[in-house]
Design a protein around this nucleic acid. Structure first.
Lengths: 146, 146
DNA sequence: TGAAATTAGTTGCATAACTAACTATATGTC
DNA sequence: GACATATAGTTAGTTATGCAACTAATTTCA
């Protein structure tokens, strides 16, 4: 095992365990402290609907990098909380369009402020160039594997 | 919301969804295809035990960035598969030392080869400097939030 | 047109994560 | 020595993930 290979194996451990879960945990904690009952996974679905409402479940799979059963259940839970509503597509009856409720629209600015605040705290001392590098590396890794 | 803040919010979405789960899924798939019945989470525990055997559960929490209930159940499952064994510490009866079995020791080289192979595939076209930047950013993010 | 293949979504089962509450042992302090 | 506090680990409940198998609707194409 070369030294280079070993360092690459280490990276996996770093990527998987450390930063992403630290950010997720912090954001979840900030939601809870603000009295918001949503999970970060649910939030990440809402995030994409705020950008474009009434997406199909398949489109939400693509945009959130989740599989279909995961989205089915996230939408189930979001529907229970009355944050989204499934509507059958007029043109293709296989498709559920997932649309935001008024309650979900009210969450938008508050939660996005919390997310930005969390990311600002997370990225203290990190430069724009470094952020750009991380994004490019991650896109590359994703493309390499899919 | 400034442009900079928005970009930072985007980064969360990238970190959380994309690269780390893509690597994890690929590695899990490679394990399965090689006939190995372990999950990547179990593997990440074994990985730290290969580096240093007979750690306490608390120490495994620290090294894998997991909480205590998660480690309890991972060790439960690893014990069911006869890959580790809990041994009460002689000096502090609160502590379980988690030690590898011979079966687990045999898994080491095969699974680490698979992990290195997966990471090599993931990191095609990524330079050493970029990897170094990602590691530094992640360490910084982790330190900023904990 | 009608059978085969594809696509969208759901369900069941196993593993894993987080929180909160819990037991047991060890330590610190008066 | 005894009581309060801290530490190690477990358990229960909810949510989320991955896989495989499934239904229903649509498209392809012979």
């Amino acid at each position: 095992m070369s030294n280079n290979q070993f360092r690459r194996g280490e990276l996996y451990s770093v990527i998987n365990g450390m930063a992403s879960t630290a950010v997720a945990r912090k954001l979840q904690k900030n939601f809870r402290q603000a009295g918001l009952e949503i999970t970060i996974e649910q939030w990440s679905v809402l995030y994409h609907l705020w950008k474009e409402d009434c997406l199909s479940q398949q489109e939400l799979c693509n945009r959130t990098f989740r599989d279909k059963p995961s989205i089915t259940r996230l939408i189930d839970n979001l529907e229970k909380q009355k944050l989204v509503k499934r509507t059958a597509s007029q043109t293709d009856r296989r498709i559920n369009l997932v649309c935001l409720t008024d309650a979900a629209k009210e969450l938008q600015s508050q939660t996005i402020d919390l997310a930005n605040h969390t990311m600002n705290e997370a990225l203290v001392g990190v430069t724009k160039d470094e952020i750009e590098t991380v994004k490019q590396v991650f896109q590359r890794v994703y493309d390499n594997l899919t």
